[in-house]
Amino acid sequence: MEEENVILSFKGIITADLLTSVLHLMEAKMETMEEPPQTRKRVFSILVECLQNIYHHLDDNPTEADFEAHNRSAVVLISKVNNQFLIRTGNCINIPKIMELKERLDMINSLDKDGLREMYQTSLSEAAMSPKATAGLGMIDIARKSGNKLDYEFLEIDSKIGFFCLNILID
């Protein structure tokens, strides 16, 4: 039997302030849980990357008319399933951007631990050469820290907007 306990969930527009609040709340919640400190740190670090990824992704699209306010909202759900932490996020994405993201995720999922380390190190040195480049470090970091493949799905809302679901099971 699968047992799932929701620790924290949120649905709404992601702002910098909200991001900060969610992180503070999650940290306080985890302090009351009997988890090894390293597990708590790993969950928190992954959550930081997830939320900041969503926030920066939204930041890429501020002026696009198709990307209306209601599409700037996201869902985040953190739970424990059979003793493992699971972070699920969902956010809107412009359809033309899906292919690129899917390719990146598949690339990350095709790599083992050593491959991920190499990809991370290469991206990090490239990122420093051109600080504005989004080297996709966040996703690689999430995959490395979780110890699992990135489970994702893209849903179609209409011809222009899709919905990106990401499930991260943390070892």
């Binding site: 740190k41 930081v48 900041q52």
Partner: peptide, 16 residues
């Protein structure tokens, strides 16, 4: 204690 990837990029720049 914690280091996000956004900070790692900046640190890399600083070390360089």
């Amino acid at each position: 204690e914690y280091l996000n990837t956004s900070s790692s990029k900046s640190l890399m720049h600083l070390f360089n």
